[in-house]
Simulated scan of single mutants.
Amino acid sequence: MRPLRGLLVVPVALALLGPTTADSRPGPGAGATATADTVATADSFLPLLRTRGEVPAAALLADEKSGTRYAESGPDISRSDHFRAGSVTKTFLATVILQLASERRLSLSDPVERHLPGLVRGAGNDGRALTLRSLLNHTSGLYDFARDTGGTRPVTPVQAVRIALTHPPADRGRYAYSNTDYVLLGLVVTRVTGRSYATEAERRILDPLGLDGTSFPGSRTFLPSPHGRAYGTDGSDVTDLDPRVAGAAGELVTTLADLNRFYSALLSGELLPPRWRREMLDTRAAHGSYGLGLIPARLPCGVTVWGHNGRIPGSYVRTAATVDGRHVLTFRVNTTAMADPDLEPALLAAEFCPRTYWNEQAPNGDPGQQHSFE
């Protein structure tokens, strides 16, 4: 349930960035010598996710003007799989909050106390001094309850908040990622609408967009069919999991295609009026680290992509898209984390940096040329 903290440095030989097909399935030895005609894409990184990243299997789905591209590497993973998406849930919940703001049913400047009276009190925490905006952009200073539960112990929303309130707050107004923020936002949606955040998200997002593979499982421990297996960092099978370990901060179950459709619709303006879409992209309060339920990533070629990542036992997923939503990529692995996190920013750069960037970086297609992704 932790976000990508920025783009780290990793050297990647262009020999690993090979051409792809509309439905490529590269094996562990995949790769091709880069030439001036080779377009760097993320597909050839999938075998690296298995070797250097030490994941059992990986898959990605990309949608752009030229069409849809799918790739996979490893056993027991497929394009139609349902999987747990962890903190990607936050973008869905933030969208619901911003829709309610556009309807004037709440204001982002509302104190948390107005909607959840008396709940946020203790150890120096005070809901009267926190706004809904500070929850959305993680500047509330509230302690992350998942640090104490390890992201493995199921808790109710109120229990999660109470765990957080046994700790003093961090500096208010400073960006500090906290799952507690979004658990509170889930409670706010219920207080404002009289319905759960899951019901509101289904009514406002899933049904209009036809996201039939996406659900909020509540306490349901099993995944819908079809699905593969999910593995913890110790190799244990954690496919069956109580989603209350994350709740409103990360319970979502979805598919590659549904995530691409959602982020494309969100960034292209289908789900929010222009003013509120701009609000979602505003990262100033978090000093460029976070918007309102969205994470920006600036790539070495100067392109900034928007989306979110999600980590929950047995699953890691990342969606990134151009700001207009016309080019979107989701990749996933069927374990909790990659051994080499530097692969993620390199994969995003391979997908979203243009052909001209790669040609300039590797004159004459020199496959030995290496690059730093910063």
Rank of each mutant, 00 (worst) to 15 (best):
R261G: 10
R204L: 08
D23E: 15
S236G: 07
E279H: 14
T199L: 09
S24L: 14
A362M: 04
W358E: 09
Y177P: 01
E202P: 00
A230V: 03
S196T: 15
A265M: 06
S236L: 10
Y316R: 15
I295C: 03
K65H: 13
E360D: 15
L187Q: 05
L241H: 06
V245N: 02
H167Y: 02
Y177I: 01
P157D: 04
F373T: 14
R277D: 07
D242H: 11
R220P: 06
L329S: 00
K90Y: 11
V189I: 08
S80Q: 14
P345E: 06
L60M: 09
V158E: 15
E113Q: 03
R153V: 14
R318D: 13
V88R: 09
V183A: 06
G302R: 03
E64S: 11
S315E: 03
F45T: 05
P313K: 09
L272S: 06
Y316F: 08
Q159C: 03
L93W: 14
L93M: 09
L256P: 08
P168V: 05
S225I: 12
G325T: 10
G314R: 06
A248Q: 10
H287L: 07
M280G: 13
Q159S: 11
V155R: 14
A94G: 09
L98W: 12
A248P: 07
P313V: 03
L142A: 02
L132K: 09
G232P: 05
G194V: 11
T239F: 01
L132F: 08
G314N: 01
S289C: 05
G31R: 08
E72M: 12
V12D: 09
A36L: 12
H371D: 12
I97P: 04
T156K: 12
S178W: 14
V333K: 01
A349E: 07
W306L: 08
E202V: 11
V55G: 06
L272D: 01
A34H: 13
S134L: 00
A160H: 11
N260F: 10
S219H: 14
W306D: 04
R104Y: 02
P363G: 04
Y175C: 10
P243H: 12
P296F: 13
H327S: 10
V155Y: 08
W358K: 02
P367T: 05
S372A: 15
